[in-house]
């Protein structure tokens, strides 16, 4: 901007002109970002303050508000279901996210082998990740049906008597994980892009040094992909902790709360039982939990994420 002003013939008019330009830029800048400012003031800041306030009280929307101090948080601490929902959500997240990374990376590696019909493979693997939400939850509700479902029919063909999936306390969360893995094709595209971005000279140099294909994979492919893996890991942990639609539609938390995820529990408390105070406290707990795991992953990133062209201290 400074160069542009000096280019102007009128810039000789001196500092008044310059400062009026700056003032106009300030006004223009805030006008352009005003939609976000409005969102920040009302839908983020004000809502967060109110949410915190609600979490210190009792309200059901119709009968006013009663301040109860930390009672909701104390109740949460002693609430067996809260801890159960935390365990369920953590189990789901910490199996699905790593398994998803391994599977999507695996598919990307296969597709990177100069295979024919790349477009066909890419579409077939990518398609399930495009169709998400209610439709998928309904479809998988039937696919996982123990009696006539596709999954158990397939297992029967190879001689395995499938479990009761969504109707079994042990197998309900694994059912959701399998369903989540079905969408692994979305991340596959990112890995494929990452793989194609690895400069060939790196491999050629390693080959000259006598590295076999396994060594090249471990010492070149994986390190060069760590920024993409890291990005996916963070986004997927945050996303998986907020799992709701499938749990609400397919099991509504059952059997015996085996699939009661944190957001589903929060939804039950708020929008089924109308205990908005307790629901808000649950929301803040979820926020803190997600923050803790996000910070942990971010911290760990320094030691394993490799940035090409980054000066490491």
């Amino acid at each position: 901007m400074a160069t542009q002003i000096s280019v102007r013939p009128a810039s000789s008019a001196g500092p008044t002109r310059k400062s009026s330009q700056r003032r106009r830029d300030n006004i223009a800048g805030f006008l352009f970002i005003s939609p976000w400012i409005i969102q920040f003031v009302f839908l983020i800041s004000a809502a967060m303050i109110v949410s915190l306030g609600i979490s210190f009280g009792e309200t059901d929307l119709f009968n006013g508000y009663k301040f109860v101090g930390l009672a909701n948080y104390v109740r949460m601490w002693h609430d067996e279901l809260f801890w159960k929902s935390l365990r369920v959500t953590a189990y789901y997240t910490f199996v699905l996210v790593p398994a998803g990374i391994v599977i999507s990376l695996g598919i990307a590696l296969l597709m990177n082998q100069k295979v024919k019909f790349v477009g066909l493979w890419r579409t077939l693997y990518y398609l399930p990740s495009v169709v998400q939400g209610v439709a998928v939850a309904l479809l998988w509700g039937y696919v996982l049906n123990p009696r006539f479902g596709l999954l158990n029919a397939g297992l029967k063909v190879i001689g395995i008597q499938g479990p009761k999936w969504l109707f079994s306390e042990t197998w309900a969360v694994p059912s959701f994980i399998i369903m989540g893995l079905w969408g692994a094709g979305g991340a596959m595209l990112l890995y494929l892009a990452g793989l194609q971005g690895i400069p060939t000279p790196l491999y050629e140099a390693a080959e000259i040094d006598g590295a076999n294909s396994w060594n090249r994979f471990i010492h070149i492919t994986i390190p060069m992909l760590t920024p993409t893996i890291y990005f996916n890991l963070l986004l997927n942990i945050i996303g998986s902790f907020q799992v709701f639609t499938s749990a609400q539609i397919m099991t509504d938390g059952g059997p015996n709360n085996a699939t009661l995820t944190q957001v589903l529990y929060l939804y039950h408390m708020g929008f089924v039982n109308f205990q908005f105070g307790y629901a808000s406290a649950l929301a803040w707990a979820l926020f803190v939990i997600i923050m803790v795991f996000t910070v942990l992953v971010m911290r760990s990133g320094n030691s394993w994420v490799h940035y090409e062209g980054d000066l490491k201290k």
Partner: peptide, 11 residues
């Protein structure tokens, strides 16, 4: 990074 669950009840 803020999960929407934190703000949706007031909203």
């Amino acid at each position: 990074m803020l999960p929407k669950q934190v703000t949706f009840i007031p909203i």
